[in-house]
Design a protein around this nucleic acid. Structure first.
Lengths: 323, 323
DNA sequence: CTGAAAGCGCTTACAG
DNA sequence: CTGAAAGCGCTTACAG
């Protein structure tokens, strides 16, 4: 334990504690030679400022929390990665909370702001939360948490439209769609809405499954889909995990990809891990989204005006699961 | 901002602040009806304790940091997931730091302990760090950080031995091994040591590559390996990411898996994500390892005796990449 | 530019 | 069981 406090440093340097503080933090003006005197004293004594005391005084932790369903998911892991790297540059630390789709844990962790344990929260949830004070520094990705919180999203509709359109143009006849449902109003719903619009446009019957499921249940979901629509020859899914599961289930059923069935995912986060096959997928610019969400949050923390919505462009990347 | 402090609560309840504090925290004995009075006052005023003040007084943040190369890696993501879930039960929050294999960032973040920003650190690094005070509450997984820090590991040697042995028993002739090198003394080196021992035992030439590489360079590493040993018919790798890359490179070279070449990975963390192929791999009990490392850290934080080393059993799981 | 002082909001000996 | 007080280690008006 470092028992040396700023008081000791001040005494050693022969100045007042106020001056020592100003010299060390750079807040307020101090003569150059005084600064040097204080710094020398601090170094000599091995002074380490007590961040807890500073936090207390400054009413800030320099900490932000991110609440996600689970970090053991490539998309969320990537979001967390880029958020932390960006926040680090700004001097902030990132607390990760796996809500595990548990509303109570989410609610409890939201309270960290009121307790001043964190300065702000990046909140990604599948649930509806009422009664959240909209003035709180909370921002989101893709999900509109309650209303009033700024959020970052991708061009879900147009990117999905492009993806499904490409399937039609490749000659696919019986195109299906599997998208996770969410309890909250979420930008992700535009993914299947685009699908439905195209089906209507081309007067084709929709093969849509939008189950409420948890991460890890992708295989079950896809088995259910193929039970319902075994004749599918092209599939658009709301995530790469679903697309990957679709690939597996198609194989289980003896279908060849992409000869018998084409598959397009969404997210573009699996490829970094050298997995097979290289999915054709709608690639989201996760780094751009993370930077935007951090920027949004900083604005909220500083009480500045923040746009209610920021869109980061996603685009279709051709892989091995389409012709 | 909650302007209501414990002082207001005490006044409202008609008691001293000390009593209010004791009533609210449960520390020290307070008459039941006093507790109720205080709780009623707190509720009426909408009192939210200022955690920053409490942290300051208690000299604890109830926060732990985990320093890893990157959370955008399935093994580390899984470790972070289980650590957070376990720490949450104990009332601790988890700060994630992606060192990005940057020694300076690691060193800087290690200082969070001395600054009292975190109560302890789970430290996974590829580098050697000297001059770390061994009395600090730091624990590790698989890597021996300097010396003196307790760590959790798996039975790297015997599990690897079993894996390579199974390749021999399957009739493989030219067995290779690719394992990431680390600058630190790490349990992971037992993985290729087991391989070397078997090769010697069976008087076979070793085909070993142990490059120092960063995550994301797996494909390059594997291309290099196959350039050196194109005749390999079975491969044991130090991670699933390497194994997955090996699968890809084998395909690039027109080799069939497992007919022409068998592949065994290490970690067992890719399967949860429904990727293809199902790797044959040495499956680590990441949940068990995370729980053990948290337990170790708690002991260190409380100043209790902690074992220097905890081993969690890993075992070979058969997938589709071996015969 | 600098020092002495006040105060952030808690918790915890210390007396009763 | 309870109250008054001290103090945790900083930062920041406030006077000089």
């Amino acid at each position: 334990m470092s028992v040396v406090t700023i008081k000791d440093v001040a005494k050693e340097a022969g100045v007042g504690v106020g001056t020592a503080s100003r010299a060390l933090t750079g807040n307020g003006s101090v003569r150059q030679d005084t600064v040097e005197k204080v710094e020398a004293a601090a170094k000599k004594l091995g002074f380490v400022p007590n961040q807890l005391a500073r936090n207390f005084k400054m009413r800030s932790n320099m900490c932000v929390a991110i609440i996600i369903p689970t970090v053991f998911h490539p998309f969320f892991a990537k979001v967390v990665y880029y958020c932390e790297v960006e926040l680090y540059k700004l001097g902030y630390r990132l607390i990760v909370v796996n809500s595990q789709d548990n509303v109570e844990k989410e609610t409890k962790m939201l309270n960290m702001i009121r307790q001043q344990r964190v300065d702000g929260i990046i909140f990604i949830t599948h649930y509806e939360h009422d009664n959240i004070d909209p003035t709180l520094p909370i921002v989101s990705i893709d999900r509109h948490v309650g209303s009033g919180f700024p959020y970052v999203t991708s061009n879900n509709y147009s990117a999905s439209y492009e993806a499904v359109k490409s399937l039609i143009e490749s000659g696919a006849e019986r195109i299906g769609c599997v998208c996770g449902a969410t309890a909250v109003v979420s930008g992700t719903r535009h993914r299947y809405e685009a699908y439905l619009d195209i089906m209507q446009e081309y007067a084709r019957p929709a093969r849509l499954l939008k189950p409420l499921f948890k991460h890890g249940q992708e295989m079950e979901v896809m088995r259910e889909y193929f039970r319902l629509y075994p004749d599918t020859d092209a599939l658009f899914t709301g995530s790469d995990m679903l697309a990957s599961a679709a690939y597996h289930v198609a194989r289980e059923r003896g279908m060849r990809v992409p000869e018998d069935i084409q598959i397009i995912g969404y997210d573009g986060v699996l490829d970094a891990w050298e997995t097979h096959p290289k999915l054709t997928t709608v690639h989201q610019d996760v780094e751009g989204m993370a930077n935007a969400v951090v920027d949004l949050l900083m604005k909220r923390i500083r009480g500045e005006q923040a746009p209610p919505r920021v869109e980061i462009k996603a685009s279709l990347i051709k892989g091995e699961t389409t012709r």
